[in-house]
């Protein structure tokens, strides 16, 4: 096999770079939206509020048990049927594929974040929240001042895992024609016959992106353990997390 990486200084390199930019944008947008969904849904499930419980369950279980790439196709092909017209128009102006990919990834990973958040809240000793309520703190105050700070220590490792999964899943967006890295690799392979070189480069780039996410997670973990002394919560977390994945 003769590989020639110097060709990357030409067009293929430019394509990969533009793909990288799209991948990062996609990951950031989807992450932001997914975290919001995750915190809201996770907290709702933790509260166990009768009225919304079935709705939360259906959303989370459905998203977790179906392939992200099919969800992507679903949003792409049927957005115009299910989304309200103004939202759809707004997305179309944005680059419609990109919007569909953000929504699909956000809903998919939001369900996983929700489970992480719920498990984190469950790891906080029950007495903590009750004590806060007993001291007269409001519900949201107790949540914000007592439950979340203790839960977040526990959350970081599985959160990092989920976020790396999200970064990796951005590659699925090529299925609906988003011009991210994997899409650009396919183009280079099809039209320039430099598949192996391009594949090597984007593999390395994905590894770097994932390692950056892990590194940010470690920073956050270090910061939190310095500023929050929630040993108790960590001890419980150790029991609940096997292989970096939260059980129930």
């Amino acid at each position: 096999m003769n590989t020639d990486f110097s060709i990357l200084w030409g067009d293929p390199g430019t394509l990969i770079l533009s793909g990288l930019v799209v991948t990062v944008k996609l990951a950031l947008c989807a992450f932001a939206l997914a975290i919001i969904i995750g915190v809201v849904m996770g907290t709702l499930r933790w509260i166990g509020w009768r009225a919304v419980e079935p709705f939360c369950w259906v959303y989370i279980e459905f998203c977790r048990n179906t392939p992200p790439v099919v969800q992507l196709l679903f949003w792409y092909f049927s957005a115009s049927f299910v989304l309200p017209m103004p939202v759809f128009m707004f997305l179309r102006d944005f680059g419609y594929e990109f919007g569909a990919a953000v929504i699909a990834l956000a809903f998919y990973h939001g369900a996983f974040y929700a489970e992480v958040v719920r498990a984190g809240l469950n790891a906080v000793p029950k007495g903590q929240f009750e004590a806060a309520r007993a001291l007269g703190l409001g519900f949201l105050q107790s949540l914000r001042r007592v439950a979340f700070p203790q839960a977040i220590r526990v959350l970081v490792p599985p959160l990092v895992n989920e976020t790396t999964a999200l970064i990796k899943n951005t590659s699925l967006a090529m299925a609906i024609g988003v011009a991210e890295m994997t899409f650009q690799y396919r183009a280079i392979d099809n039209f320039m016959f430099r598949g192996i070189e391009a594949l090597t480069v984007i593999t390395v780039l994905y590894v770097i992106l994932c390692l950056i996410a892990a590194w940010l997670g470690r920073l956050m973990n270090g910061y939190l353990s310095k500023h929050l002394h929630a040993r108790n919560a960590t001890a419980i977390a150790d029991r609940q997390i096997v292989g970096g994945e939260i059980i129930r």
């Binding site: 990796k168 090529m174 994997t182 598949g195 594949l199 593999t203 994905y206 590894v207 994932c210 390692l211």
Partner: peptide
């Protein structure tokens, strides 16, 4: 663990 499955498939 740090590479998308799709890339591994390729």
């Amino acid at each position: 663990r740090n590479v998308p499955l799709l890339i591994l498939v390729f």
